[in-house]
């Protein structure tokens, strides 16, 4: 059986998780998150493509093109006032395209966005889209475990 393919995309602000950034997290770096995601995916025999782009329209147009190439998706839209804010409509379109193909997708937020006034979760037409908010880098690990379980039980 060929390995399932997981695409993880990270939006603006996540390239720099240092304290100088508005999005600062204790001891976290994007490369340490990527490393953990690769290790966890390997444990489940998943191929993973881990991406980050400060340019949301580039990130999303690449995602739309690649939806057919991947079996599951993790999306951290991030966003900070330093870069562009979240384009909810564009993310919704991408999410709906994924769920129309019945592929698992989870929105992961490192911090609990519900403790901030200006951030809300992504919108989509399918209530099966996962949401993990506030578990730090472990949110990605939880998302991969959940996705793996869904892939395995759909076989």
């Amino acid at each position: 059986m060929s390995r399932s393919k997981l695409l993880i995309i990270n939006g603006p602000g996540l390239s720099d998780l240092s304290v100088e950034n508005e999005i600062a997290y204790d001891g976290l770096s994007l490369s340490s998150i990527e490393q953990k995601c690769i290790e966890t995916s390997e444990r489940f025999d998943l191929d993973v493509d881990f991406r980050q782009n400060d340019n949301v329209s580039e990130l999303l147009s690449a995602l739309i093109i690649d939806i057919n190439k991947f079996d599951a998706f993790i999306i951290n839209p991030a966003g900070s006032s330093k870069s562009s804010s979240i384009d909810y409509e564009a993310f919704s379109k991408a999410l709906n395209k994924i769920t129309n193909q019945s592929k698992p997708v989870v929105e992961v937020r490192i911090e609990n966005i519900f403790k901030q006034d200006d951030t809300k979760p992504l919108n989509a037409s399918d209530s099966g889209v996962g949401l993990i908010s506030g578990l730090g880098d472990q949110g990605y690990i939880l998302a991969i475990e959940s996705i793996n379980q869904k892939i395995v039980s759909n076989r």
Partner: peptide
């Protein structure tokens, strides 16, 4: 949501077990 450390939603009934594992 604003009174907790984290929110986990939409992972189905397996979400409980996944959170315990984590």
């Amino acid at each position: 949501s604003s009174a907790v450390n984290a929110v986990v939603a939409g992972l189905g009934p397996d979400g409980y077990g996944h959170v315990i594992d984590l």
